[in-house]
Nucleic acid binder design. Sequence first.
DNA 1: TAAGAGGTACCACTAAAGAGGTATTTTTGG
DNA 2: CCAAAAATACCTCTTTAGTGGTACCTCTTA
Lengths: 221, 221
Amino acid sequence: MSEQQSEHSNPASILLIDDHPLLRKGVKQLIELDSELQVIAEASNAHEGVAAALEHEPDLILLDLNMPEINGIETLKMLREEGVASRVIVFTVSDNEEDVVAALKAGADGYLLKDMEPEELLSNLNQAALGKMVISEKLTALLAQALQSKRTKKGPDISSLTPRERQIIKLIAAGLPNKLIARKLSITEGTVKVHVKHLLKKLHLRSRVEVAVWAVQEGLN
Amino acid sequence: MSEQQSEHSNPASILLIDDHPLLRKGVKQLIELDSELQVIAEASNAHEGVAAALEHEPDLILLDLNMPEINGIETLKMLREEGVASRVIVFTVSDNEEDVVAALKAGADGYLLKDMEPEELLSNLNQAALGKMVISEKLTALLAQALQSKRTKKGPDISSLTPRERQIIKLIAAGLPNKLIARKLSITEGTVKVHVKHLLKKLHLRSRVEVAVWAVQEGLN
DNA sequence: TAAGAGGTACCACTAAAGAGGTATTTTTGG
DNA sequence: CCAAAAATACCTCTTTAGTGGTACCTCTTA
């Protein structure tokens, strides 16, 4: 790791990846108003971006999501696979839940919306350079919904299950084979199979693997 | 569903569940400054709370997390199991990640911190009464981390897997049996079994069910 | 060039899972 | 109190899954 940054140490190096030259220009001008931040490279697509990241190893990468050919999420994955250790801040207009979730799951260290105030962007970038995760506050409710999203979705319904069946689903999702489930519940393996058979019918699933996956996604932990 | 609320319709009915009488008193006084909101019942523990909720069917329930005996999360689950349809807003001092995530997963419709400004609380409650999910903005970064948290955790390591094995894991997690995986990859079922065998060894798992669960939790979608 | 890793394939064998049936007991609801 | 649902048990049978071993081919690297 590098040493602690004091008041006026080296500015944080930044790579911009965005397919709009004008936007890059604007952001660059804004950033260079802050002596703690410095744009050291720009790229207009994923390939250039990865190459520039590998060459300069910047402290921060400001990454647009909406790019032709290879989008921002894919670019982010490429960066990670190439071993780029820079902190990647997604900087986009999209406040779409899927984009936000996908970006964070792909390892983004921040998600800022382009409509934010310039001063706020600068302060957020400074925070990010210090290792803090920065997220536009507009996204709070969105993130909360993503966490609980499992509900209100299509697919099988848990309400049709008996308590015993729910109990068995949890054990299946824990990876236990029927034999161990039987021991844990003090019933025979044959009976466990009966319950499994029934809940497969009810949930319209084809195997215990599907049951396990469904249960995990449903948050039945 | 009830009819659309116009400007000065009936105020939203609120149930307070909190073990501190003084806090309830304070919140109640605050809320009744707003003609759109009305506290119609109070409870000091989970049992009273559930009973009151069933009796009054309030529009909103303000629920404290930190209560003796039965905590707020459990209370929330009890409410949901009893079929209470009210919107439940967790109102607490805890900005702990696990609490927030647990509450939202348990079906909370909001999560507000007790240190917020009184006027802000009122406006948030009004929003909540209109069906909006309300979350204290302080929690944004917390939620973002919860989404990506899968990483940096103990357990088996994906890095030891070959591309082919990762490919097969995804298909297992999709619930496919070996035969279908074989077709999809244009290889024989026997070969699929070989790969499954190898990845079970590498990940120290005992069955494809465990693989599927692990993959889903790891976010390999 | 030799060694190793990865992918492919086949075989035989055991274990586990799932489908179908019948039947008893307990619980629950009308 | 009766009927339905739930839980239990046992049975057979077929399909899937998992283990062990051998083998061949390609590609990369020491």
